[in-house]
Design a protein around this nucleic acid. Structure first.
Lengths: 197, 197
DNA sequence: GCACTAACTTACCATTCGGTAAGTTCACCT
DNA sequence: AGGTGAACTTACCGAATGGTAAGTTAGTGC
């Protein structure tokens, strides 16, 4: 039962922090949403900062788990790159709160470089960059060029991952649904053309 | 002199809001940074929300001005697209606070869809999408496909635009400087390959 | 049956928040 | 000289914030 409450707190905190940011959510707001007192929450997590850290840690673990389960197989670096990035796109669609929170961290970590979860994506980034660098087009390029190309593809995915509210606001749910449906195949095309010789 | 104080307030507010977000900054913090009292600031802007709105409005105007000054000429849709997106990349490099703040809005406007500056980029988005759609590769595609492709390019630019703190944190200033230097040409290559038939 | 501990609640607290009210200073117009 | 209004300051205020302290309740091991 204890673990259950903890999980419920983490779930709610993840959603609210993703929606409103660290300073936009009070621990009382998180607690009352699941019929707890603020002090019950503090009993489990000690402080707001620690709770936030736990939320990030959990996302980071889930993230790494999903990615390692979808470890791209085969020897062709292009195919491995495509598989890894499409997996990332799938995760962003399935876990909008996670990508929202991580994007917030990207904006905030000038101040909180010490917090957990900030450089969590470093190994993933490295792996992607290596896949790109192994590609025919980039195998003679500088590491910086390969990295820039990698980061552009990452941006294409993650920027869309946080744009749902804005895009539905502008174009409506139906148009967004179509774009989202088309997105993976368009993404695959972009990736392939980006690393094509 | 009055205008000067107003501008100083707006400058400071823009920087602090970009750094810490709306809820992470108090109007007192903004005021004391330029040796004013909180009430002097309130005298000029009425409320924190209004100040924030003015900051967004100013960014939006500057944004549109820069873009209209760099109106892509010529008939070739590919060249016009490349010119428009490279201009955007230049802006992001020159005005990191602006892109930071706009990215925050992207995350927050689920709640604040009514606020100013939210859909400011709609016309720009439309123009880009039209350029992509006019491209040989996309002139027979559905609007959704063209839009997805457009948004991917936009994401490649804007995601990098907010990643400086993280990337320098991971790789250091020198490596980041090299990536930033390589970025425009890599970006141009990506754009061209994305719309190549 | 009894100590122990995890999971809470009630009561409280100092600080900070955005905002109001009521002046005060001072340049400028007539 | 006198009035006006913009640009402030000092003095408050109620609400909300994160956090502490001191219980209370209930299950568990022995």
């Amino acid at each position: 039962m204890a673990e259950d409450t903890r999980t419920r707190i983490l779930d709610t905190a993840e959603r609210l922090f993703a929606d409103r940011g660290f300073y936009g959510v009070s621990i009382a707001a998180i607690a009352t949403e699941i019929d707890l007192t603020k002090q019950a929450l503090l009993h489990h997590f000690g402080s707001k900062e620690k709770l936030y850290g736990e939320v990030l840690k959990r996302i980071s673990h889930r993230f790494e788990l999903d990615l390692s389960m979808a470890q791209p197989s085969g020897d062709d670096p292009v195919e491995r790159l495509v598989a890894a990035l499409l997996q990332l796109q799938t995760q962003n669609t399935d876990q909008p709160n996670a990508i929202h929170l991580l994007m917030r961290e990207l904006l905030d970590n000038k101040r909180r470089a010490d917090t957990v979860g900030t450089w969590y994506l470093e190994p993933f980034l490295e792996r992607l960059a290596r896949m790109v660098a192994a590609t025919p087009k980039y195998q003679d390029a500088t590491p910086e060029e390969a990295f820039a190309a990698t980061y552009q593809l990452l941006g294409a995915i993650n920027y869309f991952g946080v744009s749902r509210p804005t895009l539905t606001g502008i174009y409506g749910e139906r148009f967004y649904a179509k774009i989202e449906a088309d997105f993976p195949q368009q993404l695959e095309a972009l990736i392939r053309s980006a690393v094509a010789p």
